[in-house]
Computed example of a mutant assay.
Amino acid sequence: MQIIADTHTHTISSGHAYSTVTENAKAAKEAGLTYMCVTDHASTMPGSPHHWHFVNQRVIPDVLEGVRICRGVEANIMDEAGNLDMPLYVYLHLDWVNASLHEPVFRPDSESVHTTAIVNTIRNGIADAIGHPGNPSFPIDIEVVVKAAAKQGIALELNNSSFNGSRAGSESICGEIALLAKQYGALITTGSDAHFANDIGRFDSVRALIKKVGLSPDQIITSNEGLFLEYVQKRQNQRQEIIKSLMD
């Protein structure tokens, strides 16, 4: 199955990644991608930039190296209420928002606490995808999370980096997420979680899991350009409506 977008990439701005946007775009082109989401860590992650950095992504060209650039962020889930870690207006004009639990920001707790935090993030509607939900540091009630994502139409990420050392023990959890996503019709997105350009568009482990589970291409929003663009536009409209209502 083809994958046309990498929805989880980091640049030197994340503080612990090592390539530029241009270097990542070159790697995306070499990997045969059509779209690349720039999703540096949001401001509460140690070493990450001030939220003005994300507002100013408007200076990034729409196309680099022939690859369409989606201006985005990997936001931090801050609490059980599913609050994210930048002012609401910052998210208004972003193309893509990953929301993730990270140990330096959200202290690992119980399965119930993690599940509540992710479900409320899904329901809040600002995030387009939940990043690396298979992280074993944050055990969840997988069925509850998948059902919530399916109901709200929010994508769950299959994160290639999680299979390759960054989150040891993720494989079986991601496998269960994929199986339940197939059962309940939840949407899936694909992220390399690259912190160096060589990993942009690397989806070998994710492809293997998709094939093993037999996920339909219709559930993989990055499987074709039309599906991806439809999802991004729909989510942008919904996010803007939600944020404007909260800011009024």
Rank of each mutant, 00 (worst) to 15 (best):
residue 59 V to C: 11
residue 59 V to L: 13
residue 63 V to I: 15
residue 68 R to C: 14
residue 68 R to M: 13
residue 69 I to S: 03
residue 70 C to R: 14
residue 72 G to W: 07
residue 74 E to Y: 02
residue 75 A to S: 13
residue 77 I to R: 07
residue 79 D to I: 09
residue 85 D to Q: 09
residue 86 M to I: 02
residue 88 L to M: 08
residue 92 L to V: 03
residue 92 L to C: 06
residue 93 H to Y: 14
residue 93 H to V: 09
residue 94 L to K: 00
residue 95 D to K: 07
residue 96 W to I: 06
residue 97 V to Y: 00
residue 97 V to H: 00
residue 98 N to G: 07
residue 99 A to L: 05
residue 99 A to S: 05
residue 104 P to M: 00
residue 107 R to K: 14
residue 108 P to R: 08
residue 109 D to V: 04
residue 110 S to K: 02
residue 113 V to G: 04
residue 115 T to K: 00
residue 115 T to C: 01
residue 117 A to H: 01
residue 118 I to A: 01
residue 118 I to K: 05
residue 120 N to T: 02
residue 120 N to E: 08
residue 122 I to Q: 14
residue 122 I to L: 12
residue 122 I to Y: 09
residue 123 R to K: 14
residue 124 N to W: 01
residue 126 I to A: 10
residue 129 A to P: 00
residue 129 A to V: 13
residue 130 I to M: 12
residue 132 H to F: 11
residue 135 N to K: 01
residue 135 N to F: 09
residue 136 P to Q: 08
residue 136 P to D: 08
residue 138 F to Q: 09
residue 138 F to N: 07
residue 141 D to C: 00
residue 145 V to T: 11
residue 146 V to L: 14
residue 147 K to S: 08
residue 148 A to T: 06
residue 148 A to F: 09
residue 149 A to W: 06
residue 152 Q to H: 09
residue 154 I to C: 14
residue 155 A to S: 08
residue 157 E to V: 08
residue 158 L to T: 03
residue 161 S to D: 12
residue 162 S to G: 06
residue 162 S to Q: 06
residue 163 F to N: 02
residue 164 N to H: 13
residue 165 G to M: 04
residue 165 G to N: 06
residue 165 G to Y: 00
residue 165 G to V: 03
residue 168 A to D: 11
residue 170 S to F: 12
residue 170 S to R: 01
residue 173 I to S: 06
residue 173 I to V: 12
residue 176 E to A: 11
residue 177 I to K: 04
residue 178 A to K: 05
residue 179 L to Q: 14
residue 183 Q to E: 15
residue 183 Q to A: 13
residue 184 Y to G: 04
residue 184 Y to C: 06
residue 185 G to Q: 07
residue 188 I to T: 12
